[in-house]
Write a protein that binds this DNA or RNA. Sequence first.
DNA 1: TGTACATCAGTGAACGCGCGTTCACTGATGTAC
DNA 2: TGTACATCAGTGAACGCGCGTTCACTGATGTAC
Lengths: 208, 208
Amino acid sequence: LRVNPEKKEEKERVTQALLRVTLRLAATHGFVSLGLREVSRAADIAPTSFYRHFADMEELGLALIEELGGRFVGSWTEPDGAAPAGPERTFAVIAARALAAVSEDPELLRFILAERVGAIPSFRAAIYEKLSVVRGAIREGFVGELAVDPVKARAPLSDAADAATTLLLEACGQALDRGGEHVPALREQLLRQIRVLLAGAAAVGALS
Amino acid sequence: LRVNPEKKEEKERVTQALLRVTLRLAATHGFVSLGLREVSRAADIAPTSFYRHFADMEELGLALIEELGGRFVGSWTEPDGAAPAGPERTFAVIAARALAAVSEDPELLRFILAERVGAIPSFRAAIYEKLSVVRGAIREGFVGELAVDPVKARAPLSDAADAATTLLLEACGQALDRGGEHVPALREQLLRQIRVLLAGAAAVGALS
DNA sequence: TGTACATCAGTGAACGCGCGTTCACTGATGTAC
DNA sequence: TGTACATCAGTGAACGCGCGTTCACTGATGTAC
């Protein structure tokens, strides 16, 4: 038996509503405090209907990370149209998008930042995986724009990409807490930190 | 009326039991998922006795941060006996202690890292305040060991101290997740990152 | 075309359970005089 | 010294409430023939 595409679409709409509503509630009370009934109520479905979409809240949370989270952080690293114009060009583009995300979808960003270090190991692992795409893109940017040998400078490149990713996420968290008007200053600070990082890597002789 | 010091001590013992038990439970389920009855049960007191110590779980959480958390991160920055021996000596000492804390009190560290970016604003603010002591000590180390003018290089020093603090916390989080056997590698990576950071600051001319 | 059947998202009633909070009480200890 | 009173951490009973989960059902839609 096949399934009516309209029906499938309808179900998908409810599923998305559950995800969005969970993000909204998690932003104020924290994900682990949420219950199936609370999110069902907010999504305007009966508590029993929840089971048509997810087995429990943990499964919903993983779907949040896999679908919304993956697309979200993935959008930071899409290729940009403009030509590279400096040794931290790739990073600057990623940073600009990530910081823009603070105002575009603060609830999703809060969820990702919180659960990245939260109490649920499966969430931490899933978010780590999604963020490793970002880390990889930053690393690729360093490789391409610094014209280093990626084999010889493997460890320094990884160190720098790790550090840059960490500093990027911290800047996003600060932006979330301090409000949109601080974003330009946070971006400037972040770019200064990365510039220093790369200059240091060159000075130490690890990169050239 | 005065109060029997033995009685006060007894009450304090129960209060501490509530704090420790909360950390233990929060490590596996997340703080915001905990209830007054659950922690009271684990601390072997009646649920109603909880109110003799805290008005609610949020007050308990703040006490966790103020008392245990403050003493904990404060211990990272106590003056050490040995004489400074390099431009990142102060940081190296702090990093060593922070990473040692991973095995000494992983539950408290998890709580701090999680609630630093969690859903409760008062927790975030309180933890930020405690961590600013660490940030300040790292900055002082940079100032003293790099022999720069702290007035002229104020912004670069702040950038570097911010970045170093962020990278330190990330290393702690990684150590928590990946287990004690990865601590030496994480410490080495962290120290490389800070070395690069300082070399870059010098190269950029911000520090000298 | 009509008829019988399968699928499946959504539902309302009902369940047992643990929750936060209130209340009046106990019993040990300290204070007043 | 003895007696009356105050303080206060801890308690058990009780409350109303929301929770997660089960179950049998509805009704719309698709399939078989």
